[in-house]
Amino acid sequence: MERCEIVLSGFGGQGIVLGGIILAEAAAIYDDINATHNQSYGPEARGGASKSEVIISKEVIHFPEIEYPDVLVALTQEAANKFAPTVKEQGVLIVDSGVKINDQIKDKVKLYSLPITEMAVKVAGSEIVTNMVTLGALVAITKVVSREALEKAMFSRIPKGTEEVNMKALAQGFALAEYLV
């Protein structure tokens, strides 16, 4: 894996930050390559566009910031408006169904529009597992980490008693994307 820069963005409460940590941990601990994670902080992190940045690389990661991501997940229109223009040429853009992306960007990136929050609500009755559906879909599309590593990382970070629902959400995320890929 060459350096891959991933940005997860959406609304506070969708588990974006935890999702990023799980992805980074899957790479760093369970796939044993290098990874960094960063997030937006302060009042910025509560409400409005929330952001989680993950860099995964075979090489040591020195510069830890992302200007032009290889992969962007945008779960809200606001997040898409703000970050979609930054995605690299031929990069991956994953959006929740209903999020509109203009033609100019569409021409530049590989766009995947998936019913992520809808699936999360179906699985858990609320948007609480949105992050896991997202991670499942993201990994199915990009293969930045192994599915096994992702599952292990997830189990190490989620609260006891939520294993089943999160596992199901992750599997549904994979299913959503595998159908497309």
């Binding site: 940590i21 760093a28 290098n34 990874a35 960094t36 994670h37 960063n38 902080y41 990661i61 830890p64």
Partner: peptide, 10 residues
Amino acid sequence: DAVVGHLREK
């Protein structure tokens, strides 16, 4: 600094 303080890495 805020970068090294908040960054997660392996």
